[in-house]
Design a protein around this nucleic acid. Structure first.
Lengths: 65, 65
DNA sequence: TGCTTTTGTAATTTATATATTACATTAACT
DNA sequence: AGTTAATGTAATATATAAATTACAAAAGCA
């Protein structure tokens, strides 16, 4: 479940805490998703993508290991 | 949670049962996702997209109501 | 008209995403 | 060195995705 959330979030100078608040989840959830050991729901993926100004594909589609 | 799964699946002449088997879930799960009343996990969305030869964006991103 | 396949849907159970609480670690800064 | 912000991570609880079983309703076809 690798993805581009962490690198994209850092580029926007946003903390895990800030992204968590904007997407309605906890900091821990964001941390686990970034770590790639998590299988988030579609709604959460969409919320994250919109906050980071990306699409689903850009963050979650065929991300190289 | 509207999406383009149903219309895409029908275009490929695949039944819910067949798509379910290929993606490792039950027919009911596919049915509920197509109905839009469900919030599937990212892994399942990816599995469905690959079976239908589409990307996440094409099936789940900004689908008009 | 029947028969079969496909789909809709409900009720209950199980698995797992996410929350909560908590503490440790790291990095940046003074 | 000390302090604070940010992150990693673990243990337990809660919410919900998905399975299971079951039956009904369409839809296609003989």
């Amino acid at each position: 479940m690798k993805n581009n959330v962490k690198i994209t979030r850092i580029k926007t100078s946003m903390t895990q805490q800030q992204l968590a608040k904007k997407t309605g989840v906890t900091r821990q959830t964001i941390g686990l998703i970034e770590k790639g050991e998590y299988n988030p729901t579609l709604q959460l993926c969409i919320a994250i993508a919109k906050e980071l100004d990306k699409t689903l594909d850009e963050l979650f589609w065929e991300v190289e290991e």
